[in-house]
Design a protein around this nucleic acid. Structure first.
Length: 485
RNA sequence: GCGGUGUUAGUCCAGCCUGGCAGGACGUCAGCUUCCCAAGCUGAAGGUCGCGGGUUCAAUUCCCGCACACCGCACCA
């Protein structure tokens, strides 16, 4: 299905919708999750916890969204998480100065260069505004972090542009108090904030968005010394190297040196197994190795996990080998010690990062799960049962003859344990269609026979088949069918 | 941020050219009917016509500005 189909489903069925939409000054790039969206997101996060955090024995934290200025001085975000721009004195339009210089002269200046380098080239080559031929003000940096002011003295602080900074900052305490031992993963789910110049396409590019980030701290001398690699050695991962797809097992990727070490291969394997369980079509996925110019300023090796969607290839996860960039920076700035003991040797850990975009992942799951069945005149969201916003619809075939009361009684017994949806009104077929659209894998219907023999019909979403089951068996059937894998 | 196209009920859209009571379909809700896959009948609710200004006796309609959305460019999880 295409982007518009997903968008319409999202708006009509309570998955997500624009923030502040009743007001004209609502800003782009902010979206709300509705009831269906929250329910699905909660379950997605539970799957992430199971498949990554618990499976690998990671520590999970929940850090502040507002962090002090020093954090971002150390991390490099104040200096580097910014685009160099110039503004025309005459018409006030802003331009990316590095792009402008390249377009007009062919000279390439890296975007991280000193502002004076840009000013020098602009004046030497007499670069003028493309729109009005006006001269430019001096170059400045447009930083993509949201600045906030703390307290009556308005001390500067920032909304975090990535969740991982608190993981780095907290590392010394976590390692000491949680009896840390390398390698160790620290995970966090939360919101990050980026002042994007042009947010677009709802959940795909937000100014306020959810990340699920994992930072694995490791001994850089032991990247091939990892017992648990055996768990994923036969897992097939899809790698996109030099414009070519190479599907191979993790073991083969290490042996052929397509991946640098077992450590990286292991986590790409875990991530693959996680996404397989989300219902995303893995034949439309790849880990793409980034070139030098594409990588973030802190990365030495980088793979993006990308998935093909109706909007093109979409980056869901950034996997960056950040080496000791972060810990060295924070150690230098804070004077805190970040070295730890590993086999009685002092070592400054390196960091491998798995930075997941939750919103984008949820969009992709929706797009890959949504289909139209013309022969049955219905739209079906074939979510994995354990990710469905509604687990089961509980329906009375008709309201009268005591069926409503019997239905209420059954619903009451289920509603704490399952996301059950009670519905008495309208034609039964219409109610099934509505449940199909929110991805409810099951519907149980109470009819006249129920009153005679204590059985109900259990309808399956994908097959549209119905079985008669005893009321006493419902719980067992549902708990098995809805369980996480 | 640039260029193009749009914005009217929950959704899709008509009305705008040529200013004069805010409409349709689907959906939702209630009742009747039916009794297992969007059937039918009756009724109802639902709108700052994106926001602000201007022209006019009168603006959803004409003019200006802005915001937002979509497509393309650039940037990113």
């Amino acid at each position: 299905m295409n982007y518009d189909n997903v968008m319409q489903l999202a708006l009509e069925r309570g998955f997500y919708f624009p923030s502040c939409e009743i007001y004209a000054d609502a800003q782009a790039g902010f979206w709300e999750y509705g009831p269906s969206g929250v329910s699905m997101k909660t379950k997605f996060i539970e799957l992430w916890r199971r498949e990554l955090v618990r499976r690998d024995g990671m520590l999970e934290i929940d850090g502040s969204q507002i962090m002090s200025k020093s954090v971002f001085e150390a991390s490099g975000h104040l200096a580097s998480f910014a685009d160099p721009v110039v503004r025309c004195i005459n018409c006030k339009l802003n331009f990316r100065v590095d792009k402008l210089i390249f377009e007009q002269t062919g000279i390439e200046i890296p975007e991280s260069a000193d502002l004076t380098d840009f000013d020098k080239t602009v004046s030497e080559r007499n670069i003028r505004c493309p729109k009005c031929k006006g001269e430019f003000e001096r170059a400045r940096k447009f930083n993509m972090m949201f600045k906030v002011e703390i307290g009556p003295e308005a001390e500067a602080a920032y909304l975090r542009p990535e969740t991982c900074q608190s993981i780095f900052v907290d590392f010394p305490r976590l390692f000491k108090t949680m009896r840390g031992k390398l390698p160790i993963g620290v995970a966090q789910i939360g919101k990050s904030f980026r002042n994007e110049i042009s947010p677009r396409q709802s959940l795909l590019r937000l100014r306020e968005f959810y990340q699920a980030e994992i930072e694995v701290f490791c001994n850089p001398n032991k990247l091939n010394d990892l017992d648990r690699f055996a768990e994923v050695q036969n897992t097939t991962i899809r790698l996109w190297i030099n414009n070519e797809l190479k599907a191979m097992t993790c073991q083969q990727a290490v042996d052929s040196e397509v991946l640098p070490n077992k450590f990286v291969a292991y986590y790409l394997g875990l991530l693959t197994e996680f996404y397989q369980k989300t219902g995303i079509d893995m034949t439309k996925s790849r880990f793409r190795r980034l070139g030098e110019k594409e990588k973030a300023f802190y990365a030495t090796v980088a793979f993006d996990f990308e998935v093909q969607t109706a909007t093109g290839w979409l980056e869901l996860v950034a996997c960056n080998y950040r080496s000791d960039y972060d810990l060295t920076s924070h150690a230098t700035k804070s004077k805190e010690k970040f070295e730890v003991l590993d086999d009685e040797q002092k070592v400054l850990p390196h960091v491998f990062e798995i930075s997941m975009g939750i919103d984008r992942s949820l969009y992709t799951i929706l797009e890959h799960s949504l289909r139209e069945e013309k022969e049955h005149d219905r739209i079906v969201l074939s979510l994995k049962p354990y990710l469905a916003p509604v687990h089961v619809g509980v329906l009375s075939l008709v309201k009268k003859d005591g069926l409503k009361e019997k239905t209420d009684e059954i619903f009451l017994k289920m509603k704490r344990k399952y996301d059950a949806f009670l519905d008495h009104s309208g034609a039964i077929g219409r109610r099934y269609r509505r449940l199909d659209e929110v991805g409810a894998p099951f519907a149980i219907t109470i009819d006249h026979q129920t009153l005679e023999d204590q059985t109900v019909t259990l309808r399956k979403r994908d097959e549209m088949t119905q079985d008669r089951v005893k009321i006493s068996e419902i719980d067992k059937i549902l708990s098995e069918s809805l369980a996480f894998p």
